[in-house]
């Protein structure tokens, strides 16, 4: 299998009077269809690593290859285009747009990409919501939903443009154990049944136990890289 996402000697230093090193010389390769968990204590740099892998942040040095393309040559707009087409994000807080209905939130990335017309985007959005079990909520607004439902909607939104990789930052961090288990199972199924690569940053031990591969981060460096048998 070829690496769908590869990082080489990633360093991220926050400039300032006292520069802070967030990520220290990280190299790793992620295969298609892997369900990966990045673990580590607070402030270990795991979220920063995720932002670098997700092309949200630009490394101080080192390279990221996404789907075989070296990304350090890209400007801000090109990086945004890669995020739009190939990546999907799920965050600890759902980050749904409050004024938009559930279905409008889900179709947002499709409409920005513009490959589907409005009705096709809507149909795909409903299909995704259906797959995630929240299709009855499609006309509601985010504040009318439970935490678990909101997170499922934000997963549907992350899947809108059929990304190669789903990046999740503490996706269950704000959910109770039942809702957390559902979200965990959804992400696992996405990797195993639909061939999506899922990279999740988490504290949650149960979440980590479900992953195919666990990467431990301490002080911005890879401390452990463990694969399930």
């Amino acid at each position: 299998m070829s690496a769908v996402l590869r990082a080489e000697n990633l360093v991220r230093i926050l400039p300032g009077e006292v520069p802070v090193t967030l990520v220290k010389d990280v190299s790793l390769a992620i295969e298609r269809g892997e369900f990966i968990c990045i673990m580590g204590p607070s402030g270990s740099g795991k979220s920063s690593l995720l932002y670098l892998l997700g092309l949200l942040d630009v490394p101080t040095s080192g390279q990221v290859w996404l789907d075989g393309e070296e990304t350090s040559v890209y400007g801000e707009d090109d990086l945004a285009n890669r995020r739009l087409e190939k990546l999907g994000f799920v965050f600890q807080f759902h980050f749904l747009l409050a004024e938009f209905s559930v279905i409008d939130n889900v179709t947002l990335p499709m409409r920005r990409l513009g490959r589907l017309d409005e009705s096709a985007a809507r149909a795909r959005g409903l299909e995704l919501l259906d797959r995630l079990g929240v299709v009855e909520q499609s006309a509601k607004h985010p504040h009318q939903l439970s935490g678990g439902q909101r997170q499922r909607v934000s997963i549907a939104r992350a899947l809108a443009n059929d990304p190669l990789i789903l990046l999740a930052d503490e996706p269950t961090g704000n959910l109770d154990s039942v809702a957390g288990a559902t979200v965990r199972q959804i992400l696992k199924d996405l990797a195993h049944d639909m061939g999506k690569t899922v990279v999740a940053v988490t504290h949650d031990a149960a979440f980590a136990a479900a992953a195919d591969r666990r990467i431990g981060i301490v002080d911005g460096k890879i401390d452990a890289d463990w694969r399930a048998a």
């Binding site: 997700g54 949200l56 801000e76 707009d77 945004a80 285009n81 890669r82 995020r83 739009l84 087409e85 990546l87 994000f89 965050f91 980050f95 747009l97 409050a98 947002l108 990335p109 920005r112 990409l113 939104r157």
Partner: peptide, 16 residues
């Protein structure tokens, strides 16, 4: 600001 951040993380350009 948060909505703007989420739109940009989603792939919206600064121009959008």
């Amino acid at each position: 600001t948060r909505d703007i951040a989420i739109l940009k993380s989603m792939g919206f350009h600064a121009r959008d």
